[in-house]
Design a protein around this nucleic acid. Structure first.
Length: 292
DNA sequence: GCGTCCAGGTCTACC
DNA sequence: GGTAGACCTGGACGC
């Protein structure tokens, strides 16, 4: 039994470019069906709720695997889907900056630039930690282990992303032996404990009034979060000042803009300076054009 | 089958 | 503030 919900989309919204914006759609509890072009997710709540999201005729359709829902749950699902697809982001200034750039004209044409995110900053933070210093396959493996071993099951047998409380209830050793997180294990244990006991609330980063430099400093106070991780998180809360340079972006930049030769990060930063506070989104779109 | 390298980096110690 | 070395894991690669 499913319940259908509908969301209106802004005119400059493109479901596929949002879903394919980066690797998040490959990380549980997201699951992407590229044949039917729909995205599944399992939302946390009193009881986890599994949904299938797709687009038809300029509207987002949400099939919820629940026979009955109270109004509060329905409103939360609608709010969360708006959040993960970034339906309320205003990218008009970014499109204005990029539409006359040869390599970036596609962004405004395809209504790109909306980076898929999780319903909570906590989930994005944990997933970002899973991307550091490892292959993408290991990132997927760690996230899968977190969901399958610590996530709560929904009615249809899928699992939600673990809450901070669930993650705080297991030991550092659990992260090593079961999640296969290696040296990141103490980072996960410490982070979960801080969030669960109220000493850290990453959700406040969404509408923080701190200048980006200060907010980045706060993010980096989390063990395991360095420049790349903090700048990636900043992009996910809507601030694109930092490039979030990692080995992928560097190697792509060398290929596309430096004849395959390595160069200093300062040269990359200088290259995107003209995009101002949008530079982090500009480099990401520049390096991922072929995905679209 | 085995060893080495390195991937969507960060931390700590040291200068 | 800048740099060297250590750090888990697992897939790719060469032999």
């Amino acid at each position: 039994m499913t319940t259908k919900l509908i969301l209106e989309t802004p005119p400059d919204f493109n479901f596929k470019t949002a879903v394919y914006s980066h690797g998040w759609s490959q990380l549980l509890p997201f699951e992407l069906d590229t044949e039917n072009w729909c995205l599944s997710y399992v939302f946390n709540g009193e009881k986890p709720v599994s949904v299938i999201i797709d687009e038809n005729g300029g509207k987002i359709k949400i099939d919820v695997s629940a026979a009955q829902m109270d109004q509060k749950t329905e409103e939360k699902i609608l709010r969360d889907v708006r959040h993960i697809l970034r339906l309320d982001d205003d990218l008009s200034e970014f499109y204005h900056l990029t539409k006359n750039e040869k390599r970036l004209a596609w962004v405004a044409e395809l209504n790109g630039g909306r980076l898929l995110r999780s319903p909570t900053v906590f989930e994005d933070l944990v997933k970002t930690l899973c991307t550091t210093n490892c292959s993408w396959s290991l990132t997927k493996s760690m996230v899968r282990n977190l969901v399958e071993k610590l996530g709560t099951e929904s009615a249809d047998g899928k699992r939600a992303f673990p809450t901070a409380e669930a993650m705080a209830n297991v030991s550092e050793e659990f992260y090593r032996s079961e999640i296969r997180a290696g040296y990141r294990s103490p980072y996960f244990a410490q982070l979960a404990a801080k969030v669960a006991n109220g000493n850290l609330n990453p959700e406040t980063w969404l509408d923080s009034e701190l200048p980006t430099k200060e907010l980045k400093k706060e993010m980096k106070s989390v063990k395991g979060v360095g420049d790349y991780a903090a700048e990636n998180l900043l992009k996910l809360v809507g601030r694109y000042d930092g490039l979030a340079l990692d080995s992928f972006l560097r190697s792509e930049f060398y290929k596309r803009h430096n004849a395959g030769n390595e160069c200093d990060d300062k040269q990359i930063i200088s290259f995107y300076e003209k995009f101002g506070t949008w530079r982090g989104l500009a480099i990401w779109c520049d390096m991922t054009e072929k995905w679209h």
